[in-house]
Design a protein around this nucleic acid. Structure first.
Lengths: 100, 100
DNA sequence: TATATATTTAGCGTATTGGCTAAATATATA
DNA sequence: TATATATTTAGCCAATACGCTAAATATATA
């Protein structure tokens, strides 16, 4: 378990905080899965797959980016998203282990 | 991945929703770990370990119970909590696998 | 350069969350 | 039975979350 008393522990806690709050919304979980399975997606592709408006999806995307669960990259006027699969897995695995 | 079109899938989605929203709060994650490591805890023991008021902790507890991450059992005037380690692990593992 | 396209940001309104204190409930003890 | 103890529930309030539409920004195309 991370310790509040070390810089590393603090960062880990902050990370967990962002990640679990990002995963708390069903649409965000879906976005994450969807981007993961497709490998790469631009904002429009993602937005088109969900019921909510594009701006709303856009905010979900920035939430996920802030949590470092997604990476963005600009390409012309498009924004390319990719899932940070390694982080997602490592955090989930880590927390699985806490309960072993 | 669970499907919205089947009863089982729907239940799984609902489960994930409760679980991830329960895990979204740092205090609730701490409670969960704390109860897990101690094996069994009554409400007072748990409440005493956190900064927030007992009623606030109590609400966190019911949130966790609703998500089935904790089990409660009454014993006299005490309420005994236990972590549903199996569920926690299976959900986290499941989601880890989605990203494999 | 003017316009179209891709996307985010701003701003607003409502719903939910999470904190608190006080009150209620249930059980144990004197 | 009256009181003390353990705990939850009720009710209030401020902050946050999340939906929307309209506006802003950045890049591509005519």
């Amino acid at each position: 378990m991370p310790k509040l008393s070390t810089a590393k522990g603090l960062r880990e806690i902050q990370l967990a905080d962002n990640i679990f709050s990002a995963l708390a919304h069903p649409t965000r979980r879906q976005i994450l899965l969807s981007v993961h399975y497709r490998g790469v997606c631009n904002a429009g592709e993602i937005a088109s797959r969900f019921d909510c408006s594009w701006p709303t999806t856009s905010r979900h995307l920035s939430h996920l980016v802030k949590a470092e669960l997604l990476w963005v990259q600009s390409s012309g006027r498009e924004r390319i998203y990719r899932a940070n699969t390694r982080l997602i897995q490592s955090v989930l695995q880590q927390w699985t282990q806490y309960f072993e």
